[in-house]
Simulated assay, not measured.
Amino acid sequence: MSAAQEAGYRRCAQLTRDYGTTYYWGARLLPQQQRRDVYTVYALCRLADDIVDEPEKVQTEDCAVPRDGTSAERLEAFRHTFFDALARGEVEQPVMSAIVEGIGRRGTDPECFERFFDAMAADLTTSSWATWSDLRDGYMEGSAAVIGEMMLPVLEPYTQDAKEPARALGHAFQLTNFLRDVDEDLDRGRVYLPQEDLARHGVDPWERRVTPQWQAMMAEQVARNRALYAEALPGLDMLPPASRRCVGTALVLYRRILDRIEDAGYDVFHGRIRVPGREKAAVTLRALSGSLPV
């Protein structure tokens, strides 16, 4: 492994630790190479997402894309850089070098990344979705379900039947993010709650008010979210022990965000709801002891 790749793997781990703490804690339960490969997939997705949502914080040395230009131009440049590097199998820039080395070694289908970048581009032109089906199939297919597909080669499942549970877990993770991050997404001009559901309950998230109607709508979304986690659960038994502990830990921690949303009375407007670090550490230790409650 080249010095550039080693540096890139370290930076991918840092990006995951800084911005994806649940993924980071879960990946700590994997052997080193699998852990590193989780970090590279996360880093690729994080950088693309930040180019769209928070372009000012994306460092040029991470994404190998110039700082000038619109978000659409930078995202397209990042997409081109990634696919070009993947085709060549090598690149000098450390983070991209680590990303394509891991993805190439795992044999991940490049089509997954086409769907992913298409979804990221959609964020620049679409700010709301009419129905749950529109949101799930029109956006989350490329921004969530496909992440589960990207992770499968890293997790080394026993059977190809693990694909659908992995996709369901991708949907579940992202829907949890949507429910937790309503306020932040409004600040970006986006609503990831189905307009049909909002209208049926007579609520407007732009008002940022927690009313009985808002609570009823959110309770409905949480129930949908929990059903997705239930759909994903059978996939755990299709994974080898280390991968099962990793994914199980992430599942438990993400699902606890839903508990905290409920405990807050579905108020997602006044402070970001989090699972404390000590709780994440405790869940990880339980996973190591083989007693993770899923």
Rank of each mutant, 00 (worst) to 15 (best):
Q33N: 06
R115F: 11
E92S: 13
E92T: 12
L124D: 09
L239M: 11
A27K: 01
R190H: 08
R74Q: 10
R272K: 15
S71V: 04
L152N: 06
P212V: 10
L292P: 08
L86I: 07
T211P: 05
G104Y: 06
D161K: 11
G248R: 05
L288T: 00
A130Q: 14
D53Y: 05
F78D: 04
M151G: 04
Q221W: 00
Y24W: 15
C45T: 14
E76V: 02
V52N: 01
M1Q: 10
R226Q: 13
L29M: 06
T211R: 09
L169A: 07
A48Y: 06
G148A: 10
V38Q: 02
D137H: 13
R272T: 13
H171V: 01
E279A: 12
E149S: 13
S133R: 14
A122Y: 01
Q213K: 12
G189V: 07
A7Y: 00
C45Q: 08
P31R: 08
L253P: 02
I257L: 15
T125R: 15
R167L: 08
A287T: 08
A145L: 06
H201T: 02
T16R: 04
D237Q: 12
P66Q: 09
S133G: 09
D84P: 00
D18T: 13
L239T: 05
R244K: 15
R115W: 14
I273K: 10
I273C: 03
G138V: 08
S289G: 11
R278N: 07
D267M: 08
L179M: 12
L193V: 03
A282G: 10
A144L: 05
Q195S: 09
P157D: 04
I273P: 08
G89F: 00
D259H: 07
G290P: 07
G170W: 07
T108G: 00
D181M: 10
A145S: 13
T16D: 08
A227E: 15
R17W: 11
A282S: 13
S143C: 05
I103K: 01
A287Y: 09
R115Q: 12
Y19G: 10
D123C: 05
G102D: 11
A264G: 03
D50L: 12
P234W: 08
D123H: 06
R106Y: 11
A287F: 07
S2K: 11
N177P: 07
L288I: 11
R180C: 02
E54G: 00
D185S: 10
F83Q: 04
P157Y: 04
V268A: 07
V275Q: 06
V247F: 02
A145C: 04
R209K: 15
A232Y: 09
N177Y: 05
K57V: 14
T108Y: 02
L47V: 15
R36D: 14
D267E: 09
A144G: 06
V52S: 01
P31K: 06
P157H: 09
K163E: 12
F83N: 02
Q59N: 00
V222C: 12
F116G: 02
R260D: 11
D49R: 06
A166W: 04
C63R: 02
V275L: 09
